[in-house]
Design a protein around this nucleic acid. Structure first.
Length: 744
DNA sequence: AAGTGTCACGTTTTT
DNA sequence: CGTGACACTT
């Protein structure tokens, strides 16, 4: 069946443990795969091996973390085997579940064309419900309510169960609102992200014949990034595999970074109790990073308590020591990273370089710096294309054509562009709709608006006309791209934008054109598929899914986004207390552990060079606030990184009176190419920094009256040098180095 | 109903 | 600083 001259397994190039893990098909199997140990390789090889052993691709269910990963794995499996694996069920949990749900929708009282609500849609719906129930959104903020609902859902807790276990008024209130929210979703034939998993679980749990069907269909279950599965996903995997027990999970507990959205690290740590007779493999040889980077990373993660025992090693020697830079402020940090990137781009591809930060807000300064220095970059994630208002408007029109019960979508576009339909008109419509048990759009289309005030007749008439024409186009099988064009024309949306004649409106037109292009190429790639296919794909894309590394451009992204990726050079920026660990996670030990894992994930992305940085002061909400290096840095022995104090590099130079040997660039700060050159070259500054810095982070010092302590923070320079010291009596004190007379 | 202005609040992280 | 909610004006 497969023509393999060097045998399949030979071609896969696996080490011993990897090889055994791939060939073991005798039951539940868990592979602990540390960062860079060839996890993806094992997973792909495993799928290829299963097919080679006679499993049909149709019977293999493989859950990955992103669609991008799924695409890549599918094509690697195909190139291993030399045959297409189109039937393979590979994708994110969300997209795999949607596929099942579309087939079985009626078992859940849903139509196959249900809409998927994103977090903005969820927010509108929740706000509407709070208003309906007359709940004050100060005591019950919509976002907060949604986060509660989401955490219930990710643990498969129904509104009824919340009600049952309610301890007081507030719990009952939440149960009531959760219930109303869920009812509204069904009524509007919509599901939110969590529902996609949770509803699949409920359906399988309550429906023996459907369960049997999928247990038989999926004869092998594989799960990637198992450390980031939540309870609902665990239940799903458990339900599907409990008869045949052919389950393969890979993951790394040290990289569990999604606890805040319901992921349970215990899923991987207690795998054996959930799945008895599990065979465990550990991949500990790292092929990605240098010894220096690995030692640094191992030291970062070592203090965590809640983890499985393992230690990564490598035989890659002779790399550069990890660097920790200290900058004066976030602007200097960004400019320095941009400048360094610019130099690196002469010998490296942009796709080899990444700047990783904790929060999206940090990206702004870097964008400015990269633009200023004329260094090309790609920002991965952030406010996604599909979240822009004009794009969401277009999608809302399209959504309504597929699902006329989508009231959230309807409310979005009733009066965009303005049709004279204000609050009064809308609440009247909502009332009529409720009386007739119809959705908002159905009420308009059914002509039930005749009894409403004459002022709004015109507006509703327009909507009816637009959707009648569009409906006709859809039923005639018109091309989705053409349909969107008609929407923009018939609704007057394009006219509205072109009339505005602002730069803002211009940008929106361009975005819409981009959407039109995306839709056109989707139609080309998916001939014959309906509009709902496009909408589904659009709702389930992740930030990295659309990301394309460019040879010429440096990559900017969050540490979360960088999971699973690798780069030759990594800048891990803003490693400050309050940022990583996030201010909001500092009082909880398990959250601190997760923050530490995130730091570890960031550090282990680096193959060749890792350069971290923190700043003394950072702009936050327009205010300049002092910053201190992350506590995680103190867990790393000082010999594992090289510390560079660059706070004195721009300005303030006279303060420090540095002794410069050989070529000096510091004499004429304003003019001369020499200065510019120095400014852009970190290594030329090494000497300089070592001379000015007498104190290092974490260094042990002795004070006459306070006794021994560790240096926690350094700021200022020269005579202004200030130290924050944590003394052994437990007190933190800020001292002027000049007067403190510290001994080492 | 629509457009303008003022104020509070927010930044974790995302399928 | 930037966004979104609300109040006020036309």
């Amino acid at each position: 069946m497969i023509n393999s001259k060097p045998s399949l397994l030979d071609r896969m190039v696996l080490n011993n443990v990897q090889n055994e893990a791939v060939k073991y098909i005798e039951g539940p199997e868990l592979v602990f795969a540390g960062a860079g140990t060839g996890k993806t390789r094992v997973l792909t090889a495993k799928i290829a091996y299963l097919i080679y052993k006679g499993y049909s691709p149709d019977n293999i269910f493989a859950a990955t973390f992103t669609n991008k990963a799924a695409r890549e794995m599918r094509s690697r499996v195909e190139s291993f085997l030399g045959v297409p694996a189109s039937g393979l069920w590979i994708g994110t949990f969300h997209s795999l579940c949607v596929r099942i749900l579309r087939r079985e929708a009626c078992a859940l009282n849903y139509s196959a064309d249900f809409t998927i609500y994103d977090s903005k849609d969820q927010l509108s719906l929740v706000k509407k419900i709070l208003k309906q129930y007359d709940v004050d959104d100060r005591t019950m903020p919509p976002k907060y309510l949604l986060s509660i609902i989401s955490s219930y859902k990710s643990s498969c807790v129904t509104p009824g169960e919340v009600e049952q276990k309610a301890m007081g008024f507030r719990d009952r209130e939440i149960a009531k609102l959760y219930n109303a929210y869920q009812k509204a979703l069904v009524q509007q034939q919509a599901m939110d992200f969590d529902d996609l998993i949770t509803n699949t679980v409920y359906m399988l749990r309550e429906n023996q014949s459907i369960l049997k069907k999928y247990q038989n269909l999926f004869s092998y279950i594989l799960v990637d990034e198992y450390q980031d599965t939540n309870t609902a996903q665990f239940r799903l995997v458990h339900l599907l595999s409990k008869e045949h027990k052919q389950l393969f999970a890979v993951g790394d507990d040290d990289q569990s970074i999604y606890g805040w959205r319901g992921a349970k690290i215990d899923n991987i740590l207690s795998f054996e109790t959930h799945f008895p007779q599990t065979r465990i493999f550990k991949l500990e040889q790292n092929y990605r990073s240098t010894k220096e980077i690995l030692n640094f990373s191992n030291a970062v993660i070592a203090p965590n308590v809640n983890r499985a025992h393992k230690k990564l090693w490598t035989d890659r020697k002779g790399g550069d020591l990890v660097v920790v830079n200290r900058f004066r402020d976030d602007r200097q940090e960004a400019l320095a990273v941009a400048e360094k990137s610019k130099q690196l781009l002469q010998s490296m591809k942009g796709s080899d370089i990444a700047v990783l930060f904790r929060t999206n807000a940090q990206s702004r300064v870097f964008e400015e710096a990269f633009r200023k220095k004329n260094v090309p970059y790609v920002l991965v994630g952030g406010t996604g294309f599909y979240e822009r208002a004009e794009i969401k408007d277009c999608l809302a029109y399209l959504r309504l054509l597929v699902n006329p019960k989508d009231d959230v979508g309807f409310e979005r576009i009733v009066n965009v562009p303005p049709r004279g339909l204000g609050e009064k008109a809308r609440s009247d419509l909502a009332q009529t709709a409720a009386q007739n048990r119809l959705s908002l759009l159905q009420t308009v289309m059914g002509g039930h608006t005749d009894s409403l005030g004459s002022r709004c007749q015109k507006g509703f008439g327009q909507i009816k006309e637009i959707f009648t024409l569009l409906g006709k186009m859809v039923s005639e099988g018109e091309d989705p791209h053409q349909i969107l064009k008609s929407i923009l024309q018939l609704s007057g949306y394009m006219d509205m934008l072109t009339q505005q004649d602002t730069e803002e409106a211009q940008a929106r037109v361009e975005n819409i054109n981009e959407l039109l292009n995306a839709l056109a190429s989707w139609v080309q790639e998916n001939p014959g598929r309906s509009l709902s296919g496009f909408l589904e794909e659009v709702s389930l894309v992740s930030d990295v899914d659309n990301w394309q590394a460019r040879d010429d451009a440096v990559n900017l992204m969050t540490m979360h986004c960088a999971k699973g990726l690798e780069f030759k050079q990594v800048f891990l920026v803003g490693i400050e207390d309050g940022i990583i660990p996030s201010r909001q996670n500092v009082d909880d030990d398990s959250k601190i552990e997760e923050e530490r894992r995130l730091f570890y994930v960031g550090a282990t992305r680096a193959m060749g060079r890792l350069e971290c940085s923190y700043v003394d002061q950072r702009r936050r909400f327009g205010e300049i606030l002092p910053s201190e290096p992350t506590r995680f840095l103190f867990d790393v022995q000082k010999n594992l990184y090289f510390f560079k104090d660059l706070t004195a590099v721009f300005g303030e130079i006279s303060n420090c009176r540095p002794k410069i040997h050989g070529q000096s660039g510091f004499k004429s700060p304003k003019t001369g190419a020499g200065y510019k050159k120095q400014q852009s070259d970190f290594s030329a500054l090494d000497h300089f920094s070592q001379e000015t810095v007498q104190f290092r982070m974490g260094q042990s010092v002795k004070h006459k009256t306070y006794g021994r302590g560790r240096v926690l923070g350094i700021s200022g320079a020269g005579d202004d040098l200030k130290l924050t010291v944590l003394f052994n009596d437990g007190a933190r004190r800020r001292l002027m180095a000049k007067f403190a007379n510290l001994e080492t």
